[in-house]
Simulated scan of single mutants.
Amino acid sequence: MTEFLRRRVWTATLGEVERAFDSGSIPATFIKPADRRKSFTGAVCYSERDIAAFGNITRRQRVWCSEVVDWVAESGSMSPINESSPSTTTTATQPSPST
């Protein structure tokens, strides 16, 4: 299923991501809590200073990380599942990877 995401997605701890930013080993990254109970709002982080802005969150907090995506377009259409039950389908488009 991950091939449909068209970007790298992984889990880590907040501390691991903070250290990766500090060492310069990752670019801007979207980060959000991996736990059901959200301890902060997901955001794009550019450096360890952005993680510090989350406040007093344990660095053991599990997080979802994703490469930042520049969306080009998003469109929606109606697509019936069966004759009596229509559903909405949304398709998002992003640029093709340059490499």
Rank of each mutant, 00 (worst) to 15 (best):
residue 24 G to R: 07
residue 81 I to F: 15
residue 95 P to N: 09
residue 29 T to M: 06
residue 58 T to N: 07
residue 36 R to P: 04
residue 36 R to N: 10
residue 36 R to Y: 11
residue 6 R to A: 05
residue 54 F to R: 05
residue 6 R to I: 03
residue 80 P to W: 07
residue 90 T to A: 11
residue 97 P to H: 01
residue 48 E to S: 15
residue 18 E to A: 06
residue 77 S to G: 09
residue 29 T to W: 03
residue 6 R to G: 02
residue 90 T to F: 14
residue 41 T to R: 15
residue 7 R to M: 06
residue 36 R to S: 11
residue 77 S to N: 09
residue 42 G to Q: 03
residue 26 I to N: 03
residue 82 N to K: 14
residue 16 E to L: 08
residue 36 R to E: 13
residue 15 G to W: 04
residue 10 W to T: 02
residue 35 D to H: 06
residue 73 A to D: 15
residue 17 V to K: 00
residue 92 A to N: 11
residue 55 G to F: 07
residue 64 W to T: 09
residue 75 S to F: 15
residue 11 T to L: 10
residue 84 S to Q: 10
residue 47 S to D: 11
residue 75 S to N: 09
residue 59 R to G: 05
residue 70 D to A: 09
residue 20 A to W: 04
residue 52 A to G: 08
residue 14 L to A: 01
residue 71 W to K: 14
residue 12 A to K: 03
residue 22 D to K: 15
residue 23 S to T: 13
residue 41 T to N: 10
residue 67 E to R: 06
residue 81 I to N: 14
residue 26 I to H: 01
residue 68 V to I: 05
residue 31 I to H: 01
residue 5 L to V: 06
residue 16 E to C: 07
residue 87 S to D: 10
residue 31 I to D: 00
residue 94 Q to W: 07
residue 72 V to P: 01
residue 11 T to N: 09
residue 18 E to G: 01
residue 62 R to G: 04
residue 81 I to S: 15
residue 95 P to E: 08
residue 37 R to C: 07
residue 40 F to S: 02
residue 88 T to S: 09
residue 90 T to M: 14
residue 37 R to T: 12
residue 57 I to W: 02
residue 18 E to W: 08
residue 77 S to V: 14
residue 12 A to I: 01
residue 26 I to V: 09
residue 9 V to I: 12
residue 29 T to V: 09
residue 41 T to G: 02
residue 32 K to R: 12
residue 53 A to V: 03
residue 57 I to T: 10
residue 72 V to N: 05
residue 1 M to A: 12
residue 32 K to W: 03
residue 23 S to Y: 08
residue 62 R to V: 05
residue 39 S to M: 08
residue 60 R to P: 00
residue 22 D to V: 08
residue 19 R to T: 07
residue 39 S to Y: 12
residue 31 I to F: 04
residue 62 R to N: 09
residue 1 M to I: 12
residue 97 P to E: 02
residue 63 V to P: 00
residue 65 C to D: 00
residue 49 R to Y: 11
residue 59 R to C: 06
residue 6 R to M: 07
